[in-house]
Amino acid sequence: MTIIFFLIACSVLLALLFLGAFFWAHNSGQNKDLYTPSVRILFDDELREENEEEKKPQI
């Protein structure tokens, strides 16, 4: 049963890792703007379509 100590240590370590990841994300400003990226991601798709259209005649 002493294996439980090892398992608990692992789980706590893992949890700490996630906490650290959250802090990193927060401090790097990922939570600052939660809206604009959702719009921005749609633009990229449209631009790609345009580029493809431009490329087609060249082929």
Partner: peptide, 27 residues
């Protein structure tokens, strides 16, 4: 609106001196 974001993030096609621009819509 979303057009605003699109336009303001493509400013460098009008003025090449602009290196990077990013919109924060809510603010």
């Amino acid at each position: 609106c979303s057009s605003c974001i699109w336009l303001l993030e493509h400013l460098n096609t009008i003025d090449s001196a602009i290196q990077e621009n990013r919109v924060d819509f809510l603010k």
